[in-house]
Amino acid sequence: MEFNKILVPVTGRPVDDETMRLACQLAKKNKGKIWAVYVIAVKRSLPLDAEIKSETTKAEEILDHIATVAEEADYEVETDLLQAREVGPTIVDEAVEREVDLIIMGLSYKRRFGQFSLGNVLPYVLGKAPCQVILYHQYTS
């Protein structure tokens, strides 16, 4: 399989690092392009263009870190910061707009009401993505 354009949504969790390394490995073969995106979900009680300093600072740090991870893997990555109401549709829209052929998302083990849960974003992306999707689950002992 060949991937020329890869989208990597990041959230600031430890799994992001390995997800990015995997993206770099997959993209290297064809010298593909990688975009790492962080989505700030803005609450409905604020305007969409509200600049929430604490959130943008945190997002910038996460994106800077992920760019460093890619740098360490000897790869070039473009980072982007998006602000939207909902994360899932934003990732899908971004994938459509950039015409990516792969979305790689890191997955952490979460429990909700005692059950393993994928949350809201992953099922939405899996259901609506215009391309292939890889979910990467980091092994933790």
Partner: peptide, 12 residues
Amino acid sequence: PRRIKRFRLRRV
């Protein structure tokens, strides 16, 4: 590349 704006708005 340096980000021109701090963030882009995603209108849906």
